Amino acid sequence: MRIGLLGTGPWAERVHAPVLADHPGLEFAGVWGRRPEAATALGAAHGVSGYADLDTLLSEVDAVSIALPPSVQADLAVRAAEAGCHLLLDKPVALTVPDARRVAEAVREHKVASVVFFTVRFGGDQIPWIEQQAALGGWFTGRSDWLGSVFAPGSSSPYSASPWRQEKGALWDVGPHALSVLLPVLGDATQVTAVAGPLDTLHLVLRHAGGASSTLALSLTTPVAGGGTGMEIRGEHGVAHLPERGEGPIAALHRALDALHESARTGEPHPCGADFGLRVVEILAAAERSLESAGPVDV
């Protein structure tokens, strides 16, 4: 499978480009970016061409790996799907429900494969844990904490200059990670209630289709000493904790690309495809409405 990279920022440079260049099942074909000089430089670092014209790249590849802000991703994902390219999407798929729906509809209409790269869903220890807990069932409640320090004093995060993260905060950045694990285990969300915490911190309460409930604590402004992630679920089988991440995003992206390749080969949609990405955006948008209305919102 020939694959191109869309994006030249820190996430593209640190994760996507090295993985695409190293993945044994892919041929890394080139890089397109909104700044042609950056695309040329990133491509040269990995022995591939930089493309100034997106349509030229799309015509020469089978798939694209997108590492762009969600406000930009949706239009380009639709354009790539229309060109017949399979899609490795970043989370969130978009910042509005209509944009996310356009991506999902384009994937279905043009019969391309899609995978949304939720890093935890493709973790080596997390994949079997999620599958096992979903198969067990009988869960009563869950709790998920995603307390990041991207914007905290003393943070050295390379993503602190990200305009979309500054605007949309933790709900849209780390909220997708929490939902990507809770939903397959506890079931789809039917209702969400959001309450504001300090700075960008949000607390969500979800009701799930199977009767369970869950709480989420989301932040990008947690003091560095107090940050961290964790998830636990409780039910008929006792208490289960999501394994801690022992690897970075590189290994997870390799697995996500394997999943995309397999979905493209078989024609079977992946559980983390564009439709799931749309559902996550619908829940995040409902949480925003809940925050505005100070009450629960059905989803």
Rank of each mutant, 00 (worst) to 15 (best):
A286W: 08
A240K: 14
G148P: 12
L136A: 14
T190P: 05
S156H: 13
G273K: 02
L179M: 12
P153K: 12
G124P: 02
D125Q: 11
H261L: 13
A194S: 13
S263K: 05
D188F: 13
S263C: 10
Q126R: 08
G295A: 11
A196P: 09
W32A: 09
D298F: 12
P243R: 04
E282M: 08
H203D: 08
A67P: 08
L54P: 08
A152P: 07
T96Y: 10
V31S: 00
T96V: 09
A106G: 08
L218A: 03
V205S: 12
I66G: 07
R265A: 15
L42T: 00
K111P: 01
R79M: 02
W11P: 00
G235W: 08
V192Q: 05
P10L: 08
E288T: 10
F117R: 03
V61S: 10
H241S: 15
T190D: 04
F118R: 00
M1H: 10
Y51L: 13
V48L: 06
G197D: 14
G25Y: 09
P271M: 14
R102D: 12
H208Q: 01
I130K: 05
L183I: 11
G197Y: 06
A113Q: 05
L202T: 01
P269S: 02
E268C: 14
A274T: 02
A194C: 15
A52T: 15
D275P: 06
R34Y: 03
S180C: 12
S213A: 14
V297I: 15
G235D: 02
A135Y: 09
S263L: 11
G246K: 08
H270G: 11
G30S: 03
R265K: 15
L186R: 03
V116R: 10
W164F: 10
A152G: 04
Q166K: 15
A81M: 09
A251K: 13
V239H: 15
E232L: 01
P269N: 03
Q126A: 11
A104M: 01
D173P: 07
V195W: 07
G9H: 09
L57Y: 03
A256Q: 00
L257N: 08
P18E: 11
E13F: 01
V224E: 10
G43Q: 00
G277H: 06
P296G: 09
D90S: 15
L216I: 07
E288F: 02
G248A: 12
W139D: 06
D90M: 14
S162C: 04
V19S: 00
S180P: 03
T40Y: 01
E232P: 02
L76H: 07
A274F: 02
Q132W: 07
G154Y: 12
R2K: 14
L260Y: 05
L220C: 13
L183H: 06
A21P: 04
L58M: 03
Q191R: 13
A12R: 01
A196D: 15
G210W: 15
D75R: 00
S59Y: 05
